[in-house]
Design a protein around this nucleic acid. Structure first.
Lengths: 188, 188, 188, 188
DNA sequence: AATGAATGAGGATTCATTCAT
DNA sequence: AATGAATGAATCCTCATTCAT
């Protein structure tokens, strides 16, 4: 087959974990969705717990890489913000389950040290951007992680509604949300 | 006894569901935390599923009532927004588990019709406020639920960070967040 | 009921472990034989492994106590030997599975520290008897544990044959075996 | 290659079965120890059960042949006994796992008709020797299989202790054990 | 009303066996 | 011939629920 089984397992698990949470998802469910035998999952992952952790790390790194791709090195904070936001949108649109999975599983009791540090690394990248903006007097002087919360929280919340069919996504709407988020954290 | 058992069960379940999710929480865990026998839970609730649903409805209604309490009937949108925001803060501070529980359990597969409609009713109240503001040209013309997402998403995200000890809450910070959220959705 | 469930589980497990070994015995098999639900076993024992260990310790201690019961304090080695041998017979006859279980499970990879030390304690009691006999010049000067091997090995082997129906036990036969074992290790 | 794969599989299985029992040994364990693929085992043996049976028969026959090799046709029972005993020692020393495997797997539920009859054939050879000795009034008049139990049980028990490092084997010790076993069953 | 021992259906995981390469 | 990835039946174990006390 074209895609290999590990990838199918990742894909199936991602969707199920995003929709039903870790504990609400059974290994047989994943196996069925991935069209593999239940035992096959254990050829690729030591345990269900190791599967979530691998998946979490993989997906956070993909998110991180998406955001870093073509990151503008110019000193234009506004431009950097827009870039980050639209790359988040790109990521969310290409893989909504990944976004929801990351959001609902970060801070979970079954995540291991490495998963947490990968996630922290990702967050630190965002913090760095905010910090630079604050130095330049572009952003509000609130704590950087508070500012990230505002943008990230709003963003995820928005895509959850899209996913549930309660908001129809359009380019103009995205544009409006981007502007709102910018307005939320810039100095006024 | 001073507090009755049903209340203890609700309290224990709320904390556990917020921290470990519905499926990650077992009935014996709840029983132990509530200091009752496992069987006792079934005197008050038909099943675990009926317990989450009851709890969800109860907690959403409390949230809703908190927000509606002393709601300013003046026509000052800015004042109404501030009221709603600070009542959300009051609710979050008095019962952080309730906030996290609502956030992570809304849209879950085990919620029944009634739970969903209670939650929708709550959201509609917020939508109404937004709609009025939009009519007056105070808020951005983005869809109302998108605007709610921004404020609600930012707010919850912020309190999650507080709960995880990553942000220290101060009156000034709350004030700053309120202003950010307002800036996010007002016409600029 | 007169006997409690833990005792029924012990009894069922003992027979099955003796007949089919630890790994050849499944928890449902034990549950069925003990006439309890499979889950009930886990109310009494943490795991299958903890069950074998508990059982092993219990049974070795019973064997040990049987042998020590009415142990003659006289200085007659011949009398002490006869006592030990007949108490072993008594134990084997009252609970053949216990004897076979001890024999086939001692030195197994799943036995824990405590099980091993209980077994060693039992063996040391036998060693002490042999040592005293050797001091008095009654027993062969071979290493004590070698002498024990001869008697114990012969004894267990003999009762295995009885268990398999290949030897019919009679008082005279037991008497003959006791004498043989004595002859095996005494000075000639 | 110098040794063929079937031989490697036999060797690996023998050690593992002796150390961990049939059910405690997995086919992949055997494959790894034999340095072959798991599937390869099924080229040589129909199933795991057929492997134990083949192995059991092979090993019992080797034991049997070892004992019969150079069997003294003289009428000296003492000499015959010594021969058998020392050949058992030779076998045990050359392949301790074989001895332990035979001992712990005889009478197991997964042995088939043929395995049982091969084992019985072996035992009958020993019985014949004993019977002859009894006719001549050299051995005790106890049942022949009881006498075999004494010698065989003592012998195996002794080599188990050697295997577990609790007894150090020396020529003098072996000599002493042989004499003990003889004393155990001869007329006194 | 309250309990917690008991249950068995269902979960995570293992493993004998197959089969495409 | 040899492999080892793949499978699913069978393990061990958990947990929602019941019920005798």
């Amino acid at each position: 087959m074209s895609t290999n089984k590990q990838e199918e397992i990742y894909k199936a698990a991602l969707k199920l974990f995003a929709e039903r949470d870790y504990d609400g998802t059974t290994v047989p469910m994943i196996a069925e969705a991935a069209k593999v035998g239940a035992g096959t999952i254990y050829r690729y992952f030591e345990s269900k717990e190791s599967l979530v952790n691998s998946l979490f790390q993989k997906v956070v790194m993909e998110f991180s890489e998406t955001i870093k791709t073509d990151f503008p090195n110019s000193n234009e904070i506004r431009e950097q913000f827009r870039h980050v936001f639209y790359q988040m949108v790109r990521f969310a649109k290409s893989n909504i389950y990944a976004l929801l999975f990351i959001d609902s599983h970060a801070e979970s009791y079954y995540l291991n040290e490495k998963s947490r540090s990968v996630f922290d690394g990702f967050m630190n990248f965002l913090v760095a951007i905010i910090e630079k903006g604050k130095e330049r007097g572009v952003f509000s002087s609130l704590p950087s992680n508070a500012l990230i919360c505002i943008v990230y929280g709003a963003f995820v919340s928005f895509f959850k509604e899209i996913q549930h069919g309660k908001i129809i996504e359009t380019p103009e709407l995205i544009q409006g949300i981007e502007r709102s988020c910018w307005n939320a954290i810039r100095i006024d």
